[in-house]
Design a protein around this nucleic acid. Structure first.
Length: 573
RNA sequence: CGGGGCGUAGCGCAGCGGUUUAGCGCGCAUGGUUCGGGACCAUGAGGUCGUGGGUUCAAAUCCCACCGCCCCGACCA
């Protein structure tokens, strides 16, 4: 591939919209271009990377007998209504009408469609197990796309689905996918780890996330400083400290205009751990619930939604005022036994607490949960914070920024039951198919490599996914002698299976060297008058910045050797 | 949706207390000199100043509305 004839556009300056490292590298190297917020064009070089990632994924999945197929990106509403996700997904789903006025969506994922196929095609236990997958574009109308391709509204995902007759089969397929994912990410040259995760909208069974610790991530993971406990923030369980405040009768305190825990805590000179926060959630057609949480913690809405339902949202000001006779900031649980009250388990047995008085501009002191509040149930609804103790070993937990690369879920019967995907077992009984779903974001692999391997000069692609293996700089390409040698060497390399980018542009050397760094091709060969004269050619390794000198006759052998070494480095980790 | 920032040539930016040819650097085109880490000279092409409305003799510049993009937050398989 000749640079001079290709759609490769490197940018000399950082595009102003790019803040994160991966975004900057991908834009500057001309790998991607932004069309709209969260919508990207994959230019030839970026697309080559994605195609190579696809190939690795295919190879590994085919190896475990997964069958590739392609499902449509658009889907009628009814399919999504049966699972309840037409509403659960809400505005995150792109929805539109066809000319007849029928509702459609652009699929954010494909559990419903897969389950529909299973329903029609799987009859007997003899048809199971199955693994089906596709590599296809997904659409999600994210509230805030960011970090370039990392959180975008249209992205390419490999999604696979396992169908089994029982939990054991599911566990096997789940484990199989875990192993396959490890291989895939290793082959792509990534450093990653596996953490416990919350299923969220997908379902509530076991789920694991594959994450990479990078600054430009949108995920937070919790890791124990001492043992192997790893979880993402939504799933993490931490052990919080408990405090023993003095038990005393309830008294009112005047707290004019002080609503938030911070404000009241400042005003009364009492730490936030002495407060009980009141979070009121409502859902259409369901009873409202009041969640009590200690003042020094945040609520984990994922728990609310998975425990009580996705339709639960924080109540608005009017609703709160109506139920409590006070404005948000002053509401409290006392004498509110008619409302369903749930409390975070850190509050069990808490006394001497401060909370709202259900009277504007007043709080109460001396709240004793056991004595004063009808708590229906204590549960862990708080988000872990730095310094909480590890649930496994009690050492300190740390929070890290991370990027989610893949996610594997045990769905169980979450979709097969509502959509009626069943099979007949040996006894002729009708049973729901036990399902799993497994996703990988392709662009995220590409972006993550930039985050982890890229440097101040640009991208550093692992040889396995690089848009090309060798970058050939031809210096003084209009010189007949140079052009001749270049032609000869290129011929030899391409005949021997190398993919090369030939920088044949009639530019000064610096531009070409700098572009070669920016594009991050793992091996670089320089062909110029000097090298030809001395029969000494430079081969440069982008990753390690080593330079190897060889004579013309050894170029092919040396490059083959270096290529092997680079592949071995990738696999031998 | 809340807070902040930005929209002027392909890219990065200046001009913005009103004045008629809207600039600079890079890139692009042509010719020439160069040629192992972002060369030089000359000539040239390229602009609905985000959109709409208003104020004014006169608007990139002042006012209003809208749109788009980025960042922080809320949210997020």
């Amino acid at each position: 591939m000749k640079f001079s004839k290709s759609l490769i556009e490197t940018l000399r300056e950082d595009p102003k919209e790019a803040e994160s490292k991966s975004h900057r590298i991908l834009l500057r190297g001309g790998f991607v271009k932004q069309l709209a917020s969260g919508v990207h064009i994959y230019l030839p070089l970026g697309w080559r990377i994605l195609m190579r990632i696809e190939k690795i994924i295919r190879e590994e999945l085919n190896r475990i007998g997964a069958q590739e197929m392609l499902m449509p990106a658009m889907c009628p509403r009814e399919v999504w209504e049966k699972s309840g996700r037409w509403f659960e997904y809400g505005d995150d789903m792109f929805k539109f009408k066809d000319r007849k006025g029928r509702d459609y969506c652009l699929c954010p994922t494909h559990e419903e469609i897969i389950t529909g196929i299973a329903r029609k095609s799987i009859r007997s236990y003899r048809d199971l197990p199955q693994i089906w997958y596709q590599i296809q574009t997904k659409y999600r109308d994210e509230l805030r796309p960011r970090f370039g391709v990392i959180r975008s509204r249209q992205f390419i995902m490999k999604d696979s689905y396992s169908l089994d007759r029982d939990e054991d089969g599911l566990s096997e397929n789940f484990e199989l996918h875990k192993q396959v994912y490890i291989k895939i990410f290793r082959r792509c040259g990534l450093d990653f780890e596996i953490v416990d995760a919350a299923g969220g909208l997908m379902g509530t069974g076991q789920s694991n996330e594959f994450v990479a610790r990078v600054d430009g991530g949108e995920d937070t993971i919790v890791a124990c400083a001492d043992c192997d406990y790893r979880a993402n923030l939504e799933a993490a369980q931490g052990i919080g400290k408990t405090f023993d405040f003095e038990d005393c009768p309830i008294t009112e305190v005047h707290t004019p205009g002080k609503r938030s825990v911070d404000e009241v805590s400042d005003f009364l000179k009492v730490g936030p751990e002495n407060f009980v926060k009141n979070m009121f959630y409502t859902a259409p057609d369901k009873e409202p619930i009041l969640i009590l949480l200690r003042g020094d913690y945040d609520i984990n809405e994922g728990v609310i939604q998975s425990r009580f339902g996705f339709s639960y949202k924080p109540a608005d000001v009017e609703t709160i005022t109506e139920y409590f006779g006070a404005e948000p900031g002053f509401i409290g649980p006392v004498a509110k036994g008619d409302i369903a009250i749930y409390a975070d388990d850190l509050l069990e047995g808490a006394k001497g607490m401060i909370t709202g008085a259900n009277k504007n501009d007043y709080h109460i002191k001396g709240l004793n949960l056991e004595r004063d509040v009808k708590v229906r149930e204590y549960l862990n609804v708080r988000v872990v914070k730095q310094g909480d103790a590890c649930p496994k070993c009690r050492h300190e937990l740390e929070l890290h920024n991370a990027l989610e690369l893949g996610h594997i879920f045990k769905l169980g019967t979450r979709y097969s039951k509502p959509l009626g995907a069943t099979y007949l077992n040996e006894k002729g009984e009708e049973k729901p198919i036990i399902m799993g779903s497994y996703g990988i974001g392709l662009e995220r692999i590409m972006a993550c490599v930039c985050e982890q391997k890229g440097d101040e000069h640009g991208a550093v692609w692992p040889i396995s996914i690089a848009p090309s293996e060798v970058y050939i700089i031809v210096l003084n390409p209009l010189d007949k002698g140079v052009a001749g040698v270049a032609q000869e060497v290129i011929q030899v390399l391409t005949n021997n299976g190398f993919s090369v980018i030939i920088d044949d542009r009639d530019f000064s050397a610096g531009i070409k060297f700098n572009d070669s760094e920016l594009l991050g091709i793992p091996l670089r060969l320089t062909i110029g008058p000097k090298g030809i004269k001395n029969d000494s050619f430079d081969i440069y390794l982008r990753g390690t910045k080593e330079i190897v000198r060889v004579d013309k006759g050894s170029i092919l052998m040396k490059l083959q050797e270096l290529k092997d070494i680079l592949y071995r480095r990738l696999n031998g980790r």
